[in-house]
């Protein structure tokens, strides 16, 4: 008969923490898998009492939400972890931040409050800022206008099964051009659809509609993620947990 692990099953999850972190600088070149590996090791170094799955190769309870592409920086990556012992979220944030490389910053950590819904349900949109070194505002602004005016902008996207045509236009909820220190900046709000439309795809679309071809590789930063409402604002996905917590702390205070 196949062997079974001896001893009791692993302790259950008693607390869920939701974390926002940033990848910056050189580590924008880290892939989703690289970041996952780094995070798991950092959790061990920080001695966070993780809950584990059962079986011979127990895995720590971590759920990742869609990661920014390799090469893009981000100020808003989200992950949810399950703990076997209750901890102070701020202490976990600080310990994890210290255990991660410098270019990964743990920005927020809040306790998931039951009944407020899943984190994944609160994220359907990304806010991007793309620096275009070597491009001037006068070039970018008309290109963005042309793109927004189009109904369909087809770009070829590299997928596992070769090149695939994708319409980049509908995913882009809004876009605008700006300039900082002589460098054109593209701001945009992009819905997370399948197949994904990434900053690269939008840039390919700008090349298609307006022949905009940046002389140097652009630098993209995901500034926020969340749910896009009818007014065009992207809501903080940790908001509901924070609100529920304040409410319940308030209730305790009155006892």
């Amino acid at each position: 008969m196949a062997r079974q692990p001896d001893g009791p099953p692993p302790p259950p999850t008693v607390q869920k923490l939701r974390i926002r972190y940033a990848k910056r600088g050189r580590l924008r070149f880290a892939s989703h898998r690289d970041l996952a590996r780094a995070l798991e090791r950092a959790l061990r170094r920080a001695r966070v009492p993780m809950a584990f799955s059962a079986g011979f190769s127990p895995h720590p309870k971590i759920s990742y939400l869609g990661a920014a592409p390799t090469g893009s920086a981000s100020e808003a990556e989200y992950v949810e972890i399950g703990l076997a012992e209750r901890c102070d979220p701020e202490a976990v944030r600080a310990a994890l931040d210290a255990a991660l490389p410098e270019d990964i910053a743990v920005l927020e950590c809040v306790e998931a409050v039951q009944g407020t819904g899943s984190l994944a349900d609160r994220i359907d949109t990304s806010v991007w800022r793309v620096e275009l070194p070597g491009v001037r505002l006068e070039e970018l602004a008309p290109a963005v206008e042309k793109f927004l005016a189009a109904d369909v902008v087809t770009v070829a996207k590299r997928t596992k099964n070769g090149l695939k045509d994708v319409d980049a236009r509908p995913a882009v909820a809004s876009a605008s051009a700006a300039e900082e220190a002589g460098c054109a900046i593209l701001h945009m709000v992009v819905r997370q659809v399948t197949p994904a439309v990434r900053p690269d795809d939008v840039l390919a679309a700008l090349a298609a509609v307006a022949d905009l071809r940046p002389p140097l590789p652009p630098r993209a930063v995901r500034e926020a993620q969340g749910r896009l409402d009818d007014t065009g604002t992207v809501a903080d996905p940790l908001g509901p947990d924070r609100a529920a917590r304040t409410r319940c702390q308030g209730e305790h205070a009155t006892v």
């Binding site: 050189r26 580590l27 070149f29 880290a30 892939s31 690289d34 780094a38 090791r41 390799t70 090469g71 490389p101 410098e102 270019d103």
Partner: peptide, 9 residues
């Protein structure tokens, strides 16, 4: 590209 950036623990 990650293999060329350093910054390992």
């Amino acid at each position: 590209p990650i293999q060329y950036v350093g910054g390992e623990l």
